[in-house]
Structure formats: C-alpha cells, structure tokens
Write a protein that binds this DNA or RNA. Structure first.
Lengths: 106, 106
DNA sequence: ATAACAGTTCTATAATTCTAGAACTGTGTG
DNA sequence: CACACAGTTCTAGAATTATAGAACTGTTAT
C-alpha cells in the first residue's frame, strides 16, 4: 500500500477518489444505492488535466486496486472507482497504533 | 513519506526502529536523557541478518530521513537512529482524518 | 451488423531506483 | 601520529517501474 501511494500520479488519483467517491448508501426507505464515484475516464480527465492517456491511468488504477486501496465496479460501459475506506483505516491504524498496544522501551 | 515506506528494506528498518528506539525521556528528577536507539551498524545487523552492506543501509536511512520519518543524531563515533513519531502521527492523521473534517458527498 | 465508446492489455522505450564495492571523512584509541 | 572503526559518498551496473502508443475486449446505440 505504501508503495502504491508512493507514486505522485497514484497519490493524486487516490486523493481525487477520496474527495469525490461515495460508499454504498442506504436511503431512508431501505433502498440500497450502489457505490457512486467517477469513471476511469473522469479520473483520467481530472488527474491529467484533459490529456487522455487512459492506458497510463488504467495502469495506476490497477496498482491501487492490487494494493487493496481502491475498488472498481463495472456499471454498463463504465467502471466506477472508489476508495476502500476500510483498508485506508487499517493502514492509518498501522501507523498510529493504540498507545496501550505498544510496549515500554525504556 | 509513502514512497519511503514503500520499499521493503526501508519498511523493515522503520519497523525495527519503531520497536526499539526511544524518544527523549525526562527522568523523575527532571534530568533529560537524550534519545536512545540503535546505531547504523545495529540497524544494518538487524535488517540484513549479519551481512554488513553498510552503504545500502546508509542509503535507505538517508531516504527515510529525507522523508522526515526518522531522525539521526551523532553520538561520538556513532549515529543514533530513531523514528520521528510526530511525523508518523501526522501521516496517520492524513489517512484517517477526523470525521467532521470531511465534507458530505451524497 | 456496424459503429462509436470505455477500458484493458501488450509492447518498447525512458526513467527511476536499488545494490554493493571502493574510496573518502570524521572520531576515538594505542 | 598511526591505526582501527563507524558511516557517508561515489560509481557503475542491475533491476524495477512509469509512460504512451497500438491493438484488443466488451458494451451500448444506430
């Protein structure tokens, strides 16, 4: 995961997804709305500023997905991207463990 | 920082330092004890399992230090290594921001 | 069926990064 | 001073990774 976030392009993708994607939502009537989020093309537009080198973005999205940081879901002709917030939370917990979990050292 | 932690060797160094280094401590009598932690040689021994390729470890330690994740302090003939726990905490906070800080998305 | 579109995979090249040996710098010791 | 020691920097060379164009797959619309 660190390696995946270590590339500037991927970090931008990750930040964009964090800012604009939305996890599964349940409406008041109990209706489950699927994940919403940008398509690969929208990520591409946003991250590259209009240049459309989809192959490069696709490559980076695959890296992020293999690292378990993002999810991708087919919706018709498009792929909807979103961050795996649980994975991100676990990664944060690895960096900032609960104080009682660490042992005394001196 | 992510890039620095993204290399397996550096992650091992980082984990070793987290496990065995100790930040500045203040004794009951108010005496400030300096940071304690392993020397570069000890890191090298621990991480490489005895092989002593100090140049490689030195390279990785520099990367970690440039990223702001660790500190190094000269003590006589040695360099004492330690993690910058504040920086690590900030990085964790970046990944797991306070819920109230994030905006609504849907 | 044909065509347009969204993404992925393949390919080669470019760029970056890792590794480890050699040479160098600074510190304490006999 | 001379020497051993702890690390750093320098230097190639090896390995990994990023980039972008071309070809391919699958989906929707005409």
């Amino acid at each position: 995961m660190f390696k995946a976030l270590g590339d500037p392009t991927r970090l931008r993708i990750f930040e964009f997804l964090r800012a604009c994607c939305c996890p599964v939502a349940v409406a008041e009537d109990g209706d489950v709305r699927p994940v919403t989020g940008p398509t690969v093309g929208e990520v591409c537009c946003q991250v590259t500023g209009g240049d459309k080198i989809t192959s490069t973005i696709s490559f980076h999205l695959k890296e992020l997905r293999n690292a378990g940081l993002i999810t991708m879901e087919k919706r018709g002709k498009n792929m909807i991207c979103g961050v795996d917030r649980e994975a991100v939370t676990r990664l944060a917990a690895y960096l900032a463990p609960e104080p009682e979990a660490s042992s005394e050292c001196c």
